[in-house]
């Protein structure tokens, strides 16, 4: 079966594209592992999405997903493993072995948590190492955890984990904490949080589950160990664009190069809205706007 449009990704750009494509009566399929994108991992309320004084990421995802589904958009929950274009037809394959085809594609995979690339990280994913605080945080009730990254995401994770963990270390690579004062105050108010700056994570160790981390204290150039049960990674995000290689020009950060008027890439009929492109403003509302723009231009391309 051939679709007019396949939308890959279920973050704000992808879901808004779904809503707009339904309104344009385009035969559309949305393929996403899950809905929400980075909003799924947002552990404090969103306060800058128009129409809501404040709303949790979880609630906003539910509202967007319902709005999209109520318009009759077809959804397939799975991971996309390849994207090709031959003879003006896009072929999209998924991890479970499905193949879908379409005339246009909106690639809205956004960004994914940056890996730490230290020994033990891969081995202990799901066994103490987590990239989703909102999902896995509640499993660390009365445990000791480390958050890697002293930016706002790290402190927001600490605010959330204050509800569960008994002790929280925040490790920041730089000499200074980068998080805003408000997030720092909220995180520190519990008295459970200890901040360690100039800390370079070297290794995650354990047996079946994580038991400790090793970091270098760069102030004295000495390696130290901390006993922890969990490691929450908050070291920023990187664009999830590896499937675009060959079809789209990527910059040195692996962000997709697009025409910002249309969000189209050098491959005609292939659009990249949201955090996967090289736009400098990474915001939910911008991703939504770009999702809408991409659909309108995909519609023009088809007609």
């Amino acid at each position: 079966m051939e679709y007019d449009l396949i939308i890959i990704g279920g973050g704000p750009a992808g879901m808004t594209a779904g809503i707009y494509s339904a309104r344009q009566k385009m035969k559309t399929l949305v393929i996403a592992k899950a809905f929400g994108g980075q909003m799924a991992n947002k552990s404090v309320d969103i306060e800058n999405y128009p129409g809501f004084e404040k709303i949790s990421g979880f609630e906003l995802i539910q509202k967007l997903e319902e709005q999209m589904r109520n318009k009759g958009v077809e959804v397939f929950n799975d991971e996309v493993v390849s994207l090709k274009k031959e003879n003006d037809v896009f072929s999209v394959s998924t991890k479970s072995g499905k193949l879908f085809q379409s005339k246009t594609v909106i690639f809205a995979t956004g960004a994914e948590p940056r890996k730490l690339s230290v020994p033990g990280e891969k081995e202990y994913v799901g066994r103490g190492v987590s990239y989703c605080t909102t999902c896995d945080g509640p499993l660390f009730n009365n445990k000791v955890v480390a958050i890697i990254g002293g930016g706002d995401a790290g402190f927001e994770a600490a605010i959330f984990l204050n509800n569960y963990a008994k002790k929280i270390y925040i490790l920041e690579y730089g000499e200074l904490i980068r998080a805003g004062k408000d997030n720092q105050d909220k995180a520190l108010s519990s008295g459970k949080v200890k901040i360690i700056t100039s800390a370079e994570l070297k290794e995650i160790k354990g047996e079946v589950f994580v038991k400790s981390i090793i970091y270098k204290d760069k102030k004295i150039n000495e390696e130290k160990s901390l006993e922890v049960d969990g490691v929450f990674v908050a070291a920023g995000y990187e664009p999830a664009t590896h499937l675009l290689e060959g079809l789209v020009d990527l910059n040195d950060k692996k962000e997709a190069i697009v025409n910002f008027e249309t969000l189209e890439t050098k491959t005609s009929g292939l659009f990249v809205p949201g955090d996967a492109n090289f736009g400098k403003v990474k915001q939910i509302v911008v991703a939504c706007g770009e999702g809408a723009t991409a659909v309108i231009h995909a519609y023009k391309y088809l007609n």
Binding site: A34, F35, I61, T134, C135, D136, L139
Partner: peptide
């Protein structure tokens, strides 16, 4: 867990 989108 209560606010896990993957679970939903």
């Amino acid at each position: 867990t209560p606010i896990c989108p993957y679970c939903m």
